[in-house]
Every structure is written in structure tokens, then in C-alpha cells.
Nucleic acid binder design. Structure first.
Length: 801
DNA sequence: AAGTAAATTTTTTTT
DNA sequence: AAATTTACTT
């Protein structure tokens, strides 16, 4: 088989070890996807395994799509009557549940609805209100995170409740919300993202019959990005492989970046314990990046305590240095990136370029800069097509038609377009629904029913509009039924949900640019539905499921010249040229992770992922000022910059920069750095002399000069020669910077978040936020008993406490 | 009931 | 700065 010829020895071994448990530890760029795809092709064409016996699971639709494509490519020319199932964890679960959820006997049936995060939040909000709490005491988002975390650890609300200390009111409240939330979803015949996994695992655990069925079906299982699996996914794999044990997992512990989703790195680290006869294969040769890029990535990941020590190597050349740029503000950073991209595009238009950032919110400045420079770009993530209001509205109508008990969908559309059924009437309806203990849909049926004579607090007009709404949905249901009974098309039904509900007319009446754009989006939705027209059975169901499970991360277009996305979204991709931007403390690493060593390690792995996306050229940049919540704030260089080998970095900044500062410092005063440069002191971990925090601060400058003194005394070096030219400029620049805090006010000023201070009137307080610069520094301080105060640092007379 | 103005909050990362 | 929620008119 000639496809094997393109593999190295290790890779070939990974492909040909088809039976039993196999763990492939694949470093970044080591040809992981190639190994998986060739392995699937090998199973089919060499081992004569029927394709339907093969299951490959990934985390994203993007990865699944790519894999499917490549397998098809490898197998083309062979006449196969089935295709291997290449899918995501969540799609796999939906597939299983749509067939067998009724075996669970939990009241769910096959027409269950999938709630996305937005829907879940809405339910949570209602639950918080129902237990008599306020959203301010109990942030819905946090509650959902707590519940989701618990669920992904395999707990249920009873277990969660039992862990609550009775002094912990908040957790106790969350436990109550948890219970309510689960009930609501169950009543609505709805499953959230987590439930898809949970219910599937439960189903496999409790039903021998179902377990046997899927064990029989999936005889060879492959799992991609195994380091990102959480306990539930682990359990799922466990049940599916119970019989055959032909399980092949591929992953890299250095690229584990989903701990926040309860991914457990131990799943990969302890694979050999779980599958005692497992064979482990290491792929350490990198085919993607230059040595310089690999060295930089390696230098950063080395700072993590918790990792398997391994080193990637490559036969590729050293390549260019890492290009570095320090910008004055966020806009300057974006302009620099646009300028460099422009240059690359002229030089070599074929090279694909990526701009990678930590958070989606960072994209805006780059979008604007590229647009100004007339550079076309493609943006991945952020707002998804399926997250747009008009799309969600129409989908909600369709969801109603398939599962009318879906309260969330009902609430979404009952008065969109407006039907004269406003907030007051809605409150009454919800109130009644709670009284009856049934869904809103059933409540509507009761209230509008002929034999219902009870007095309701609804105007005749409201009742009338309920009747009309009911009719609208019922009409839609009839059309849905037509899809399976006659040969009505899925796209017809989608069209009906747009037209017959009055939705399109509402938009036409608006007659604005925006409403026109929304109409166009709806046309797109109809187009998307056409793909499902030919499907035999439950085409509409599949269409809705697809909408629920597709994120925008999936619409990566590999032909786009420039792509922007978060580092998370970039995992698994590679680009000749990469711009890693916003390398500032608080952004990357993110401020929410900075205080927890575990989370900081995850940020570091994230940086590792980012850097190893680059094939030939890597740019890194940061800005000295950054807008946060609309206010301009001083920004510090990322601590990860300090962890990179400075000698591999080339400075493209105008004037002096953090890099020039760090370089002069490291070489002149850092014995560790000097000896490390000479190759001594192998064991010793390179200590960070200056973390990003202190660069540019009074202490750093003072420290710098002190060290210099000590060193020159020790080594007997005479005082520095008079500076000339560029060096002089640089020195001047750093002097000006150091001037900001004057020595007298040093104790009083320069308070940073986290500092304890004393105020003449309010007493002891905690600094929460610092904004502005120079004389305009404003501090937000929390004083026990007085609440939060905004103070001008200069006048506040604060002391260190 | 619906539309508008004012106040409040928001940012990790994703299926 | 932008988006969402609430309060206030009409």
C-alpha cells in the first residue's frame, strides 16, 4: 500500500498496530491527522474492516470535516458500500439518543430538543427568580458554569447538594437552582450540551441491550485530541470499547487547553493504567515549523511543572528569527500587523496568514485595520450565523413544531412578531403554567379550550392572540408531518416558518438596512436547508440538530488568505505565517487565570499551541496601552515574553521597547542568563529575572541600577563608557519612563489591584482596579462598610496598609 | 402594549 | 465602546 510509504517508522507503526489499545502521543506538527486518516484507510483497504465498523471521534465539526475529507481522498477509487463514521462527541451522542433515549425511562422521547448555552441561561434565570433570588446575588452565567462543571464531573444535583456546606448559602442556592433546572429541562423534553453526553453514558451504563448494540457496531474506535476528554467522554469511550478494546487515542498533553470544560489531562497520562495492554507510540518529529519556532515554544512550555517531558525535533532549517513588535496602543498594534501582512501578500500571495488572539473581543481592531488596508480576511468564531436573532427565532418556530413542550422556544416566538401579547399577559400565562404544573403550550391549550370557564387575568384580546398563535404553530406542525408522510421538502417547512408566521412581513415592514440584512440571512437559512431536502427521514430534525451543534469555529475556510481567530479555535491548524497578538499580562495570560498556578499552566499550554501553529514565520506583538471596558489603561508585557529565548527574537519596534530593555538587562545583570547562554547550569530552571509586572515600574528601574552597581563592584568593571548613538537614545527612553513615579511619592502612589491601602476617612480598603496614567490615575477601592469608591490617586492620600 | 431613553454590565476559552 | 436590561413615556 503506497500511502504507507509517505510515513516515517513511528507513524507507520501507529497505523499498523490495529488491534488492542494504542496511545499515540503526538507532538505539535508531527503528522497526527495524517496518521489517523491513513490508519482508517488502512483498516478498510488492508484489513478488510467494513467501514461501518469504524468510529472516529473528534471535538469539533471542523476536525471531523477535515478528517472525513482526507479519508475520502485516501479511499477514492475504491467502491465502498458504507462510510466510516467520523463525527464529534456531541453529534455521536445525538445520534445514539435519537434512536434509543426511550430506553432510559426518564420521560424523554425521540423528539427531544437541544438547548444551547443561551437557552440554558434563560432557564437558569427563571429558576433563580423562582427560588426567590436576585440575578445580582446569583449571576446566571456563574450558576450555569457551576452546574455544567458538576455535570461534567459526572455528578447529579443530589450529589452536588450533598457536598454543600450548610454555611455556604450561595452553593446551597445553586443546588436548588440545579434541581429546578433539571426538572425544567426534563419537562420540556430538552437536553443541554452536557446532557447529550450524560444521558448517552447513562443509557450505555444502564442498558445492556443498547451497550451490546453499539459495541457490535463500532469495532474500531479512534479518538482525536484525547487530552481534551473529560470524565464523561472517558466513560463513553469505556462503554463503547467494552467488548472489542480496539481503541486508538491520539493526543498531546502539552496541548491540553480545555480544563475549563472539565477536560482531565489524567485521561491521557494514565491511559496505560486504564488499558493495561496498551501500546504507546511517540511521534516526536515535527514536520511543520522551523527550529527557531520550536525552540521558542519549548522554552515556554518548560516552565510548566506538570507535564510529560519530551522534546520535539525537526529536520527543518532554523528559519527566521521571531519578529517582535511593541506598539503604543491597540490601534498601533493593528496597524503594524496590517502593514506586515500587506508586505507578505505582495511578496508571496500564496502564504496563508493567521492572526491569533486570546479573546474574541480583540478581533475588532484588526478587522478595522485590515479593512482600511483593503486586505481581505476571514474571521472564525465570535458571532455565529446560527446565533443571530432572526435565525434563532425561525429555528425556535421549527423547534416548536417538532416539540411544542419546549418552553424556551415558545417564549422566544410567542410575541415575535408582535401579536399583542405583551409582558403582562405573558406573566399571567407563566403563572398559570406553574399552577397547572405543565408546559406553556399545554397551558395555552387549556386556557383557550372551550370547557375552560375559570376566570383568567387575560384580556379577550390576549386570549384571541393566543388562539391565533396556537393555530400558527399547528399549521406548521402539519407541514412538518408532511415531510415524512408526503415528499414535502425541508426547505419548504423552513420557508413556512419564515413566511406563515408573519416573521418576514415584520422585517419587510421595518424596511431598514438592518432588516434587509436579516431577510438575507433568512434566505441563507433556506439555502442551508436545501441540503437536507434529499434526506430520507427526519431531515428537518437533522437540520435543527446541525444548527444547534454547529459553532462558527467550524466555518474555517482554508483558502482564505488571512484568517483571524482565537488560539483555541486555531488548534489543529497550521499557517506559514502567524501573528500572535496582545501578549500582555491580563490578556494573555488572561486576568482570570493569573492567580491560579494551574490555570496559568493552561495559559502556557495555550501559548504553546499558538506558537506551534506557525510554519515559517512568527510575529509576536503587544501594546503599552489597551482599552478595557471603554477606558484606556496601561498594559504590561506578558510574562510569557520573558520566558522566550530573547536571542531568538528580532525587534521591529520603533524606538526602545520592552525587548531592548529585557535584552540589555538579561545580558548585563543576569548571571543565570549569561551562564545559560554559555550552556552552563543545565539543571537550574532559568529564573525569570523580571516578570512583566515590574518592567517599567519604579522598582524595576531601581533594581536595575542597583544590580548594575553590585555587578560592577564585584567584577571590577569600570563605569560604563559614555553612550553613543542608538544606545543613548535607548537609555534616554528608559530614563523618561522611569521618571513617572517620583521617589517621594513612591510609598503613597503606584497602588495596583490587590494592594491593601488606608484612607483617612474610610480606613482600610482593597484596591480593585487601576485606570489612567500619570496624574490621572483613578483607583477603584473597596472599603468594608463603605462600599466601592473611585478615587483620584493623586488626591486620595492613600497609605499602604 | 410598544417604543424609547437611561442605566447597567460586560470579556475568557467551546460543544 | 457596545450590548443588554430596566425605567419611563406615549
Amino acid at each position: 500500500m503506497d500511502i504507507l510509504a509517505s510515513l516515517n517508522d513511528r507513524q507507520r507503526e501507529a497505523v499498523m498496530t490495529t488491534d488492542g489499545a494504542v496511545l499515540i502521543l503526538a507532538g505539535a506538527g508531527s503528522g497526527k491527522t495524517r496518521v489517523i486518516t491513513v490508519r482508517i484507510a488502512y483498516l478498510i483497504s488492508e484489513k478488510q474492516v467494513p467501514p461501518y465498523n469504524i468510529l472516529a471521534v473528534t471535538f469539533t465539526n471542523k476536525a471531523a470535516g477535515e478528517m472525513r475529507e482526507r479519508v475520502t481522498e485516501l479511499l477514492k477509487g475504491q467502491r465502498l458500500q458504507s462510510a466510516p463514521l467520523v463525527t464529534t462527541f456531541h453529534s455521536l451522542c445525538v445520534r445514539i439518543l435519537r434512536q434509543d433515549i426511550e430506553h432510559l425511562s426518564e420521560g424523554y422521547n425521540k423528539s427531544f430538543t437541544i438547548y444551547d448555552t443561551d437557552d440554558s441561561i434563560k432557564v437558569i434565570k427563571a429558576c433563580i427568580k423562582d427560588i426567590g433570588f436576585d440575578e445580582k446575588q446569583l449571576a446566571p452565567r456563574q450558576v450555569l458554569n457551576a452546574i455544567s462543571g458538576s455535570k461534567n464531573r459526572g455528578e447529579d444535583f443530589e450529589l452536588y447538594a450533598s457536598q454543600v456546606e450548610y454555611t455556604d448559602e450561595k452553593r446551597a442556592a445553586i443546588a436548588r437552582v440545579f434541581k429546578l433546572y433539571e426538572e425544567r429541562l426534563n419537562n420540556a423534553n430538552a437536553l443541554d450540551f452536557d446532557d447529550l453526553m450524560i444521558k448517552t453514558v447513562k443509557l450505555l451504563r444502564t442498558s445492556q441491550e443498547v451497550r451490546d448494540k453499539y459495541n457490535e457496531k463500532f469495532k474500531y474506535i479512534l479518538v482525536d485530541e484525547y487530552q481534551d476528554t473529560n470524565p464523561l467522554q472517558f466513560a463513553l469511550i469505556g462503554y463503547l470499547t467494552e467488548k472489542q478494546q480496539n481503541i486508538c487515542v491520539v493526543g498531546d498533553d502539552s496541548q491540553s487547553i480545555y480544563a475549563f470544560r472539565q477536560a482531565d489531562i489524567r485521561n491521557i497520562l494514565e491511559f496505560e493504567q486504564h488499558f493495561p495492554n496498551a501500546k504507546t507510540i511517540l511521534l516526536e518529529q515535527n514536520y511543520r515549523s522551523t527550529q527557531t519556532i520550536l525552540d521558542t515554544a519549548d522554552a515556554i512550555i518548560k516552565n510548566n511543572q506538570n507535564r510529560k517531558d519530551k522534546k520535539l525535533w525537526t529536520a527543518n532549517p532554523d528559519g527566521d528569527k521571531i519578529f517582535y513588535h511593541q506598539a503604543f496602543d491597540g490601534d498601533g498594534e493593528a496597524r503594524f500587523v496590517a502593514q506586515m501582512i500587506d508586505r507578505h501578500r505582495r511578496q508571496n500571495p500564496k502564504d496563508k496568514i493567521a492572526i491569533l488572539y486570546r479573546t474574541n473581543a480583540q478581533s475588532r481592531l484588526f478587522e478595522e485595520a485590515l479593512r482600511r488596508n483593503r486586505i481581505e480576511y476571514n474571521i472564525v468564531g465570535g458571532f455565529s450565523f446560527y446565533e443571530r436573532a432572526e435565525i434563532k427565532d425561525v429555528i425556535a418556530y421549527l423547534k416548536m413544531a417538532l416539540n411544542p413542550f419546549d418552553d424556551i422556544a415558545l417564549l422566544r416566538v410567542i410575541n415575535t412578531p408582535t401579536r399583542g401579547f405583551g409582558k403582562t399577559s405573558l406573566d399571567e400565562l407563566q403563572h398559570r403554567a406553574k399552577d397547572f404544573g405543565v408546559s406553556l403550550w399545554e397551558t395555552i391549550a387549556i386556557i383557550t379550550g372551550l370547557e375552560f370557564k375559570e376566570r383568567v387575568n387575560l384580556t379577550p384580546r390576549a386570549i384571541e392572540s393566543l388562539k391565533k398563535f396556537k393555530k400558527t404553530i399547528e399549521n406548521l406542525q402539519t407541514k412538518v408531518a408532511d415531510v415524512s408522510q408526503t415528499d414535502r421538502k425541508v426547505s419548504d417547512v423552513v420557508m413556512a416558518a419564515i413566511e406563515d408566521t408573519g416573521y418576514a412581513n415584520m422585517l419587510r415592514a421595518e424596511n431598514t438596512d438592518e432588516s434587509a440584512a436579516r431577510l438575507e440571512n433568512l434566505e441563507e437559512l433556506v439555502n442551508a436547508a436545501v441540503d437536507y431536502d434529499k434526506q430520507e427521514d427526519s431531515g428537518l430534525r437533522d437540520f435543527i440538530d446541525h444548527a444547534a451543534l454547529t459553532s462558527d469555529t467550524d466555518k474555517y475556510d482554508r483558502n482564505a488568505a488571512v484568517t483571524m481567530m482565537t488560539v483555541h479555535a486555531a488548534k489543529g491548524l497550521e499557517f506559514p505565517i502567524v501573528f500572535l497578538v496582545g501578549l500582555e499580562d491580563g490578556i494573555f495570560p488572561h486576568s482570570r487565570s493569573i492567580n491560579d498556578p494551574k490555570e496559568l499552566e493552561e495559559e502556557r499550554r495555550l501559548a504553546y499551541v499558538a506558537i506551534t501553529r506557525a510554519e515559517k514565520v512568527l510575529y509576536i506583538s503587544h501594546s503599552m496601552r489597551r482599552r478595557v471596558y471603554g477606558e484606556e489603561m496601561a498594559a504590561e508585557p506578558s510574562q510569557f515574553l520573558n520566558e522566550m529565548p530573547l536571542e531568538l527574537i528580532h525587534d521591529l519596534s520603533r524606538g526602545s521597547s520592552w525587548l531592548s530593555f529585557a535584552k540589555s538587562n538579561a545580558v548585563k545583570t543576569n548571571k543565570h542568563a549569561v551562564s545559560a547562554l554559555r550552556g552552563e547550569n543545565r539543571q537550574e530552571k532559568p529564573k525569570n529575572l523580571y516578570t512583566g509586572k515590574t518592567y517599567n515600574s519604579a522598582e524595576a528601574i531601581a533594581d536595575f541600577f542597583n544590580k548594575k552597581k553590585v555587578e560592577s563592584r564585584e567584577s571590577g568593571v569600570e563605569s560604563p563608557k559614555p553612550l553613543t548613538g542608538f544606545d543613548k537614545l535607548k537609555a534616554q527612553a528608559s530614563q523618561t519612563k522611569s521618571e513617572i513615579p517620583n521617589p517621594k511619592s513612591k510609598i503613597k502612589q503606584g497602588f495596583t489591584p490587590g494592594a491593601h491601602v488606608r484612607h483617612p476617612k474610610y480606613g482600610k480598603g482593597l484596591v480593585l482596579r487601576r485606570e489612567g496614567t500619570g496624574d490621572n490615575v483613578k483607583l477603584t477601592v473597596s472599603f468594608p462598610g463603605f462600599g466601592q469608591k473611585k478615587l483620584i490617586e493623586k488626591f486620595a492620600n492613600l497609605e499602604k496598609a
